[in-house]
């Protein structure tokens, strides 16, 4: 046994102070507290486990959500169809062949028959068409009204 070993044996002869009784009691209480939830919690039933399991929740909610979205989109589509204005394709076609109205069809048909008929048709449509109402477009070089200009020229 060398010097170090002898000295270590001398040191080992000293006994460290043991932990207090309170420390053992506190550890016992804490370990009991940690063990309590495991012992006291009742096992979950299958339905409870299902309700707590996110996969179960997702599996249950997904079809419901899909159906809901489907019916919502379907309802919106129907409403859009209802609200959509009816496409009136009959009126323009009928109007195109109405000889009382000016149209390319009526002019061509009249021209095919004779020039007199075309003239007659043009005269007919001319009487029905409203008179043009030309509007005078004003162009002003000055920002003064006519009365103001007259008074101004009068002064000159």
């Amino acid at each position: 046994m060398n010097e170090h070993d002898q000295f270590a044996a001398d040191l080992a002869a000293l006994r460290p102070l043991p932990p207090s009784r309170e420390l053992a009691e506190r550890i016992a209480a804490e370990l009991a507290e940690l063990a309590k939830p495991v012992d006291t919690v009742e096992p979950l039933s299958l339905s409870q486990r299902r309700s707590h399991d996110p996969l179960w929740l997702a599996a249950l909610c997904a079809p419901v959500a899909i159906c809901l979205i489907y019916f919502l989109l379907r309802g919106v589509g129907e409403r859009q169809q209802i609200n959509m204005p009816e496409s009136n394709t009959e009126a323009p076609i009928a109007a195109a062949f109405d000889e009382s109205l000016p149209s390319l069809w009526s002019y061509r048909r009249a021209a095919d028959k004779s020039l007199d008929q075309l003239d007659a048709l043009l005269d007919k449509h001319a009487t029905h068409s409203p008179e043009p109402k030309p509007q005078r477009a004003g162009a002003y070089a000055f920002a003064l009204s006519d009365s103001e200009l007259e008074s101004l020229f009068g002064e000159l």
């Binding site: 043991p18 932990p19 207090s20």
Partner: peptide
């Protein structure tokens, strides 16, 4: 408790290296 009886004194002594009082050392050991 067997573990604490066996190692407790050395554990408290080890904790005392970083504390100034025994109560703090026992808190650490706990």
């Amino acid at each position: 408790s067997v573990w604490l009886d066996r190692h407790g004194p050395a554990l408290v002594l080890l904790a005392r290296q970083w504390t100034t009082c025994r109560a703090d050392a026992e808190d650490i050991v706990q």
